[in-house]
Design a protein around this nucleic acid. Sequence first.
DNA 1: CAGGAACTTGAGGCGTCCCTCAATTTCGTA
DNA 2: TACGAAATTGAGGGACGCCTCAAGTTCCTG
Lengths: 206, 206
Amino acid sequence: MPARTRPLRADAARNRDKLLAAGTQVFAERGLDAPLEEVARRAGVSIGTLYNHFPTRQAFLVAILPGHLEPLERITAAALADPDPWTGFVAYLDGLFALQAADRALNDAVARQFRQVGDVHESCPRGLEDATRIIERARRSGRLRADFEVDDLVVMIWAMSQVIRESADTAPDAWRRCLSFFLHGLDAGPGAAAHNDTAPGRPAAP
Amino acid sequence: MPARTRPLRADAARNRDKLLAAGTQVFAERGLDAPLEEVARRAGVSIGTLYNHFPTRQAFLVAILPGHLEPLERITAAALADPDPWTGFVAYLDGLFALQAADRALNDAVARQFRQVGDVHESCPRGLEDATRIIERARRSGRLRADFEVDDLVVMIWAMSQVIRESADTAPDAWRRCLSFFLHGLDAGPGAAAHNDTAPGRPAAP
DNA sequence: CAGGAACTTGAGGCGTCCCTCAATTTCGTA
DNA sequence: TACGAAATTGAGGGACGCCTCAAGTTCCTG
């Protein structure tokens, strides 16, 4: 990644910042499919300028998404730092979905995962790694059912992302109730489900 | 609903049937947003003819959806007939999601509920009524947790519809595993979770 | 402050899907 | 068979979003 030969001209730098700010706003409101023309308009800049700075939508997302992912990283760190692995796991899910509910960009980003967002950032594999550690810890503690894997989390994120989308306007907290049902099913005790059935199939390989 | 004054002309009736058949196919493959031009093409008919028979997409859906909903009605009936209410409940969910996985039209239809599909059919309120009965039965039996309501089922359908969509191409059975986690959380025993926590919030009101 | 490089602009071409309607074709009957 | 009603056709206009590029503007340096 060669450093820019020459620094950006003053007006160009200003416009770039306005675009990033507008993009962050618009994507948070309308999701990652929001029209770029809306972003340009809100930045007070022409669509051509947007394409001048970011040749493709992908490039624009790469520039913007880290800002949306950062809060998630703090939640991840907190979850890993929790002395109780199960509590940490629950806090992780709760924090993750709360963020998704507050930010459509993040909701889309984590739900589409690699697929559309592609190699958006090192934080993608790193996020999965951290999630794996959180799950692993909770599993070893005996509280999280033993057959829950990180791929199951991915599926769960698909599921919750839709709950969040559908309920955003009418009942923005609906996901909490749904999560509590789900958690109940993941909880292996003590005093929890003593079922001996095991989940069918392998975790989805997305 | 006045009966058609005059019967359809032979060619018109033939085209209508071809359109319905093509629509059923295309929507099952590509969901309710499939382009109508694709339907017309597959029916071997011009787009104008489609609009001639069905003035709006909605009207077309109204004509087509009952066919997609019918298998669900059989599953609903079977669930209600099951002597064991919990088994019936589980079979209902299993059957419902299996159908959704096999038919994108149905997946979209039940997930969007009234919203987009609108007053598609009497089967919409009736389906909810039946679902309520299935839930009620399972709850009274003591096996389904007492705070699960039909609105929770709606949320669950949102969730699973997305799992089904996302995994359709790569792991079409992923929903089963997800459902098993979820069911585990809904199961109140015997031998099941003895948690005394109750789900937060009220069920979503969509 | 002049000149050239850097940057911006926005109309416009492209693609997709919507839906319409005047011209044409097909059907069914007298 | 010939005629009028019923159906069909598909080009075309509208909306939206993508992205480009020639012309115009702004900056910065000498």
